[in-house]
Design a protein around this nucleic acid. Sequence first.
DNA 1: AGCCATGCACCG
DNA 2: CGGTGCATGGCT
Length: 140
Amino acid sequence: MTHTISKVLSANDTGENGAHQAGILIPKDKTILSFFPALQKQMKNPRCSLVFTDTDGVTRWKFDFIYYNNKFYGGTRNEYRLTGMTAYIRSMKLEAGDSIELTKDENGRLHITAKRQQSAEEENGVLKLSTTWKVIRIPL
DNA sequence: AGCCATGCACCG
DNA sequence: CGGTGCATGGCT
């Protein structure tokens, strides 16, 4: 049984807003979280190193899945993150709006795919076609 | 809940 | 000493 999830990158994720942060946020959605290994909620900031294989089937990317839960230890955090992704994001030249797809195959192996956002020109092209052309009358 | 932002430690 | 990223706080 494979499991695939995807995330649209925010400006903060890609570093476009100057944030020197190395990871993306993982929503606390059961179907999303179940993709990742369970972390020890009873310890502070538990983490797990994960290796994803790129689409070429050769390149490996190591990310860290971390549960920042210091809210239960006197802090304010209670969120999941996947850190250490800047090398990947840069090599793929990903920008806010682009997305990444994470897949876990039958053998539990992890794969990552970069999904580039449709360009504005392409969107305009589609829009132009759909709004410029109309069916006036259908032949009998 | 999710994105924005940063102090400081670390490292070349 | 400038860049990077962890860990964390802030804002909407």
